[in-house]
Structures are given as C-alpha cells and as structure tokens.
C-alpha cells in the first residue's frame, strides 16, 4: 500500500473527500475514499448487470405467448415452490445484513453467523430452483421446447448462476476474514459482496412478480 502519501495524485478531483477541513487523518481519509471508489465502481457494475437482466426480461415478456402449442406458464409454474424460494432469498438478504452489522461492530460471531445462515438459505434456494428445472425437463418442458421456455430458462437460469457465483464469493469472504481479519481491503470486498447479494434479491423480486405470478395467472 504505497498510496497513502500520494493521495492527491491518485484522486485529483477529490472524489471521496470531506472538503479539506476534517479531523480524520490523511491516511484515514484515503482509506475512506478508497472504500467509496470501490463501492461506487461495483455499484456501476451492478447497474450494468441489471440492465443485462432487463434485456432478458424484455425478451421473456415478448416471448411469453410463443409457446409453440406447448405448455404455458399457467400449466407449469408451482407457486408453492416459488413462495419457498422467495422466503429463502428474502431471509438471506436479512442475514447478510446481520453479517454487515457484524463487520462494522467488529463482532466476528455476528459476521460468521450471518454469512453461514446466508449460505444455507442461498443453497436451499438453489436446490429448490434445480428441483424445479429438472421437473420441467422431465415433463418435456425443457429450454428447447418453445421460445417461451428458452426465454424462461435463460432469465431464471441467469439469476440462478448469479446466486451460485454469490455463494462461492460468500465462502471466499468467510475464508479471507478468517485468515486475514477485518483488514480494509478485505472489508471492501465484503462490502461489494453484500451489494451483490442484495441486488440479486432485487432481481428476484422482479422475477417472481413478472415471471411466476403474472405467468401463473394468464
């Protein structure tokens, strides 16, 4: 970390700075601005990721009626399973919030506990989703059956892949905090992870509303 003494050069526009009149030391401000820059950069990435989801949502919305005389959402969707998936993901957003509190309160038990429960809930969500996918494929409603089902598997599967990546990232964060402690660089990664996890839950809100609830009713 050689950046502490050359902050002016790294941050010429004073992007993360408290206007020059602050009690926080130079090094503390530099660390703070680095956190803001990392979080903001990841925020931009998340928004672009959501725009990608929007494209998949658009193609799904356009293709919902293109069932090629095959099954439609009303014939296929099981809202009980979706309700359980929703409960898992919503609770996991809450527990990842508890892990975040554990970080700034410097309580490792809260962090590990929150992250562990988040992992279990996320894995349960993935298991339920995989069960749904295999049952659809077994009923001859796989992604190759119709344009509607292709769009469905692309959209929901893309979210599932994000959750899978999030679970791997979660384990990595637990291991890094365990091995290296609450270091500023590790904490920036934990911040980005929690942003990612909450954003996945926001995408799921759109998913269960648009795909499952609207689809089951039409």
């Amino acid at each position: 970390m050689s950046g502490h003494h050359s902050t002016a050069g790294m941050d010429p526009n004073h992007i993360g700075h408290a206007g020059g009149s602050g009690p926080p030391s130079h090094a503390a401000r530099a660390a703070g601005s680095k956190r803001v820059i990392a979080g903001y950069g990841f925020w931009i990435f998340l928004l672009s990721d959501i725009i990608m989801f929007a494209a998949f949502f658009a193609s799904y919305a356009v293709l919902t009626d293109a069932t090629a005389k095959g099954p439609s959402g009303r014939d296929l969707f099981d809202l009980h399973g979706v309700a359980w998936e929703t409960a898992c993901l919503l609770l996991s957003s809450f527990t990842s919030g508890i892990a975040t509190i554990g970080v700034w309160a410097r309580r490792k038990s809260w962090f590990y506990g929150g992250m562990a429960v988040t992992f279990v809930l996320g894995a349960t969500f993935l298991g339920l989703e995989l069960r749904e996918f295999t049952s659809l494929v077994a009923r001859d409603a796989g992604p190759s059956r119709s344009a509607f089902l292709s769009a469905f598997f692309t959209l929901v599967g893309c979210h599932g892949l994000h959750v899978t990546a999030g679970l791997l990232w979660l384990l990595t964060m637990m291991a890094q905090v365990w091995a290296k402690g609450f270091r500023p660089d590790i904490l920036r990664r934990v911040l980005c992870f929690s942003l990612f996890w909450h954003a996945l839950d926001i995408v799921w809100v759109a998913l269960f509303s648009v795909v499952y609830l609207m689809g089951a009713g039409r």
Binding site: A18, R35, Y40, F94, I101
Partner: peptide
C-alpha cells in the same frame, strides 16, 4: 463538499447495533 458514502454503507454516526438491526428488521 460533504463526503460521499459508498453504496450499501450507513453513515458512521448511525452505527449502533440496535439501530442497525432495527433497520434490517
């Protein structure tokens, strides 16, 4: 000129455990 805050972060003065848990609840 007020400092920016990272998305996902709460202001440092607001960081009480009870308050944080209440917000998430």
């Amino acid at each position: 000129r007020q400092a920016d805050i990272a998305p996902g972060d709460e202001p440092i003065d607001d960081r009480e455990i009870a308050k944080g848990v209440r917000g998430y609840l």
